[in-house]
Structure formats: structure tokens, C-alpha cells
Design a protein around this nucleic acid. Structure first.
Ligand code: FES
Ligand code: FES
Lengths: 144, 144
DNA sequence: TTAATAAAAGACAATAATGTCCTTTATTAA
DNA sequence: TTAATAAAGGACATTATTGTCTTTTATTAA
């Protein structure tokens, strides 16, 4: 569904979100440990998230990554996916035709339309806030 | 969503299906041309489909690929996807955790559940017959 | 102002996916 | 039984993805 980069990216973002407000910044090492991801690779992905203004970062002693409290509600899954994997998951033709449209539909176009619509709706309406809530409550997990 | 192999595989299968019954067998060259795919790569994918009994093949003069008429209804999209990409698309955790279950859910598990269910339902209930019908009628396309 | 810290950035390495080419095997028809 | 044909199979090449390592830059505190 998503690339490995995107999976790590979503997990990292959720983890950072759970640490927002209270402890402030979280370091790369802790993030990679808590989401069980390759540390250097995770660093690269975080750079993309920072460039896309989803995550804030600061260098030096006491530095790390964070997400502003008042952005937890407005940041949706779709923003993270878009930043890392682009919009191909939603827009691409399911059979790989160069462009997916009503005018030149592939055989699965009508069928896929609804699945894609569901996916987009879900991604656009799932906020970082609710995702991190499950972690805080110990109901959901970010590794294994 | 699917791998390139799977996309080519679905397109090839649909094309073969449209040629079933009437002209009998279709050659690799024609298939690759009609679905605009790399010919040698397509050959590999067809081998997988033949091994999975989705497509029948015969060598030598007049040989080629075909699908039995009475199997057009029973072959579903899910069979093709499963043969080429396996079942990871449906069963894999959306965030890459090692196993997706109710007992150890990731933060998006509940959200993804419904999207995946929709996808599976669609794949299990879409037959080759209906997919090839659109091509025969000139309403859907297999390339560009 | 120096040392310590931590992210950013760039170069490189390993792996997997995609794609090509050549040889072999089976089938048909002359 | 030979020649032509077309898929099967194996080896290889290319590209994209994933992952690592080292250096640079920014920040803080001593
Ligand atoms: S054209 Fe293939 S999904 Fe729209
Ligand atoms: S555990 Fe992640 S989708 Fe089920």
C-alpha cells in the first residue's frame, strides 16, 4: 500500500505526536527505538517531514523533533502520505495506465473508484490527534 | 497499490480473456503489443499465471495463451493478484508491523480495516468476464 | 570561545523490483 | 525426420528502494 519510508514516517510522526505538549522534543535515537526502525534511514524520512512543515526540528543540545499542539488536530494522515509517497496512491490508475480518467478508463476503473474514494476519505479524516490517543491509552502499538 | 508485474499480469489476463472463445490462442507478441508492456518481462509474468492455472498455454506453431470460456466467470481479480503479488496487499499491516491483528493493532488498524475489506470484497467479486466485456464493447482500455 | 550535542546533508552500499537476452523444450507442419 | 514456431527457463543488466556511514551545520551550556 505505502512504501516502507511512508510506513516509518507515519509511525515516527505518531510517536512524536504522543510526546508533544508534555516533554517537548524527542530525539532521533528514541524515535527509532520506539518504532523499531533503522535509525539513519529514519533520519532521512524525518528530514522530509520537517521540510513539509509536518514536524518541527531543532539542532544542538536539547534539540530534537516535535509537533505543535494546535496542529495535532489539523494534521491528517493524508498530509504525511502526500509528503513522503506523493499522491500516486490515490490518483494512479490501478492497472498502471498513464492517466486515470473517466474519459479513458481501464477495465477496473469503476471498481477501483470506490475503494480509492474510501481510502482518500479515511486518510483525509484521520488526524494525528486521534492516532496518538490510542498509543497514549496503550490500546495501539507502533512496533512488532 | 499493486506491483508493476501485477498490473501487467491483470492487463494481459484481461486481453487474453477478450480473445478466448473466438480465435482461441493469443501469442506473447500480440499480448505485449496490445497492453503496451515489455515483451520479455510479460513472458515471465505469463509463466506465473500459467503455473497458477489461470491461463493455459501451448508451445509450437499455432501455440499461445488462452483462458477456458467456462472459467471466465469463476476467475476473479483476487486470483490474479494472489498469484503474482501474494496476499500481502490484504493482510499486511498498513504501517508495516510484523502481523496485523486485533490483539496487537497499530494506530491505523481500525481505520484500515474497512478500506481493506472493501478492497478484498471488490477483488473477490470482480470476474474476468465482466472486465473483458468492457474491452469488447470498446468502453474500457488496456493501454495509454 | 570552546566543547558537547543533535539534526542536516552528502556519498556510498545492499537489496529488491523491473527488464533484457539467449538457450532449451515442446509442438506442428511440411 | 527436419524445419519452423512459440513458450519455458536461466542468466544477466538496469533501476528504484531501502539502508549505512561520514562530514557539516546549528545550538546550547560550560
Ligand atoms: S483508469 Fe485505471 S483506475 Fe482509473
Ligand atoms: S495492525 Fe496495522 S493495520 Fe492491522
Amino acid at each position: 500500500m505505502f512504501s516502507k519510508s511512508c510506513e516509518y514516517g507515519i509511525r515516527a510522526t505518531i510517536f512524536i505526536a504522543t510526546h508533544c505538549c508534555k516533554e517537548g522534543k524527542v530525539g532521533l535515537k528514541e524515535i527509532a527505538k520506539e518504532i523499531d526502525s533503522p535509525i539513519a534511514f529514519t533520519a532521512k524520512i524525518l528530514q522530509v517531514l520537517v521540510k513539509n512543515n509536518i514536524v518541527k526540528s531543532s539542532k544542538g543540545v536539547g534539540g530534537g523533533f516535535m509537533i505543535l499542539k494546535d496542529e495535532l488536530k489539523s494534521i491528517k494522515l493524508v498530509n504525511i502520505v502526500n509528503a513522503i509517497d506523493g499522491d500516486s496512491v490515490f490518483l494512479r490508475c490501478g492497472l498502471g495506465l498513464s492517466n486515470c480518467s473517466e474519459e479513458h478508463p481501464c477495465p477496473v476503473h469503476e471498481k477501483f473508484k470506490f475503494v480509492k474514494k474510501d481510502l482518500i476519505y479515511m486518510l483525509e479524516n484521520t488526524s494525528l490527534e486521534e492516532l496518538s490517543l490510542g498509543i497514549k491509552k496503550g490500546q495501539t502499538f507502533l512496533k512488532y
